[in-house]
Nucleic acid binder design. Sequence first.
DNA 1: CAACAAATTGGAATGATTCTAAGGTGCAAG
DNA 2: CTTGCACCTTAGAATCATTCCAATTTGTTG
Lengths: 146, 146
Amino acid sequence: MTTATQPPRHPAGLAQKLADSGLRSTPQRELVYDVLLNKRDHPTADEVFARVKPELPGISLATVYNCLETLVQCDLVRAVNFERGPTRYCPNLRPHAHFHDEVTGQTHDVDLPETLFAKLKSELPPGFDANAVEITFRGKAKSSAN
Amino acid sequence: MTTATQPPRHPAGLAQKLADSGLRSTPQRELVYDVLLNKRDHPTADEVFARVKPELPGISLATVYNCLETLVQCDLVRAVNFERGPTRYCPNLRPHAHFHDEVTGQTHDVDLPETLFAKLKSELPPGFDANAVEITFRGKAKSSAN
DNA sequence: CAACAAATTGGAATGATTCTAAGGTGCAAG
DNA sequence: CTTGCACCTTAGAATCATTCCAATTTGTTG
């Protein structure tokens, strides 16, 4: 490494946030974060891997997964569709939301006023035409009061 | 069918809805639907398989998957978390929703007023304490207007 | 009953993710 | 500056949900 070291393309916050969690700043973590900031198209782990590889040819896919998880834990990045588990099925056909209890793992139906669903759709910018809205809450529900 | 035939535990609608789509009513499909109606705890395919097996020991997991997909196609059942694909990552930390373009497969960020997120949480029944809300729209966006 | 289409079946294949064991890296204390 | 040690990375194997496939079964129609 000569004087050619490139400045980081991301806010200085990374090293700090990592340190806050007792974690180290590594080239892999910085690069993965850079890639996410530079093209905000919600890439998959594989896509991040592909973008990172040219700059750090030795990096492994496992590391990309590790880095992404680390960034999520530090609240620097959010995972979309992070329902790791299998698909669940529900015979309730009325429009409703789901509440996912993080303690028990149970999923509850939550009825919401139709007007809210309408309101949500009406908030979409012009050019976006939604035919479905999915709302999922995460948290804890009082004991087993189904 | 003699007098010993058990009455279906589900609304008569099944056979009809299936027929509407040019599909047959089969013991497997009826039983899978029964199971979903009888215990509405959002079971996974494996769980459905386990509940169905005692009554129809010869049924295969593949058939359970097939039946579930059929029921979803007939609009009798909804699949929760049906993001089959890989997890996506997003460095946008402000509260926002996602719009999933079903044509291009792209995911866009959609900013919504904070008040809407608050409103949503306030609609939760007592005893439900959410620390996160996930909102995903599905539909099509006007051309490539990122 | 014969023929054909629709369904089911078991097992193999796929694909994302996680696990595991081994090797590297860098700070910290002496 | 060297040794120790905790943290990281790595490659490849393992897992798990889901899909695919080819063969068999079932049901309906002629």
